[in-house]
Amino acid sequence: MRKAGRHFLQIPGPSALSDRILSAISQQTINHRGADFSEVGQRALNGLKSIFKTDEHVFIYPASGTGAWEAALVNTLSSGERVLMFETGHFATKRKKLAQKLGRRPEFISGDWRRGAAPDKIEA
């Protein structure tokens, strides 16, 4: 019988998680409409202001990578506009289909996703 090793988070992973993070994940969730969450959320927003070096409002967009892609596509491009996309992993072809579904025209550059985007192909 094969004994499994330490579990990895696989979004997009695998990513090793420290014991501190695993311990935090194992805690009971808090009510997202309660006072405890409000306190944690406010601390997070204030911390983000520090990270982004701003005194302005910071907004959190709670979504997966797909949600971020959708927000970017619909808020920066109009229907029929072209978007250059480079294959950088497993989900790249799904993002291409999402762009098409939203009426954008993806120009998809296939590549070796293990090496990242190739600047010369993007420039061409």
Rank of each mutant, 00 (worst) to 15 (best):
R114K: 10
F52L: 15
Q27T: 02
D120Q: 10
I51E: 00
R104G: 09
P14Q: 04
R6C: 05
H7V: 13
L9N: 11
S64D: 13
L22R: 14
E107W: 10
F52N: 01
W113C: 03
V40I: 14
N46T: 04
G65Y: 11
E123N: 06
A68H: 13
N75I: 07
Q10I: 15
T66K: 11
P119T: 03
I51M: 02
Y61W: 13
R82L: 03
Q27Y: 14
S15K: 02
G34P: 00
E81R: 01
L73E: 03
G80V: 08
A99D: 04
S26G: 11
E70G: 02
L84W: 02
R82M: 05
G47V: 04
D112K: 06
G65F: 14
R114G: 01
T29E: 14
A99E: 09
H90A: 15
S50C: 02
K96G: 05
E70K: 11
L73S: 08
D120R: 03
G89T: 00
S50V: 08
A63T: 09
G103D: 01
E81M: 02
A117H: 10
R2Y: 05
L17F: 10
S38W: 00
T54G: 07
I11N: 12
K97V: 02
P119E: 08
D112Q: 02
N46D: 09
D19I: 09
A44G: 00
E56F: 03
Y61E: 15
V58K: 03
L48D: 00
V74D: 04
A117V: 04
L73M: 13
P119F: 12
F52S: 10
R20I: 15
L17S: 12
I30N: 06
S79P: 12
L9G: 09
F86I: 05
S110D: 07
P119W: 13
T54Y: 05
D55A: 14
